[in-house]
């Protein structure tokens, strides 16, 4: 690993894979930011969310390793699929791993959990197959 990088290529791959999987499952856009904040973490995380291409349908996971803070921010559309309670549960999972020094494991597990919680099953009543029964 080059000096100064937060993650090894393998770790980055794992996180990207988890993000990709969460997006496929939920249909939402997931983004992960790891770094320090110039201000309070929550407003900073909201600023980051608003920089995304479609903030309303996005979920941003912000981790400040130095300040030991974690923020999960959901846009208005994403909030309908991913409740604050579900986000809190994922935050709890990540918090446990981060406290043990496992940033990658926490992010992978947490993002997967967020994707699973945001998963929307297909509407069966809208399917033609149901009418054939």
């Amino acid at each position: 690993m080059p000096a100064g990088d937060a993650f090894t290529p393998d770790q980055l791959y794992d996180i990207e894979k988890a993000v990709q999987h969460a997006e496929e499952v939920s249909g939402l856009h997931f983004s992960v930011y790891v770094g320090g904040a110039d201000e309070e973490t929550r407003p900073f995380a909201i600023e980051l969310l608003n920089e995304l291409d479609d903030p309303d349908s996005s979920v941003l996971v912000y981790v400040d390793p130095a300040g030991r803070r974690l923020e999960i921010v959901t846009g208005s559309q994403a909030k309908r699929q991913l409740s604050d309670v579900a986000a809190g549960l994922a935050a709890l999972t990540m918090q446990t791993s981060f406290a043990a020094g496992d940033l990658t494991g926490g992010l992978v597990t947490g993002v997967q959990q967020l994707g699973t919680h945001a998963h929307q099953p297909p509407l069966l009543h809208a399917s033609d197959e149901l009418h054939k029964l």
């Binding site: 291409d53 903030p55 996005s58 999960i72 846009g75 909030k79 991913l82 986000a87 809190g88």
Partner: peptide, 15 residues
């Protein structure tokens, strides 16, 4: 590309 999220949800934690 230029949207501002209107209603924000989510969660916070520290360790």
């Amino acid at each position: 590309g230029t949207g501002i999220a209107r209603t924000i949800g989510g969660a916070s934690a520290s360790w």
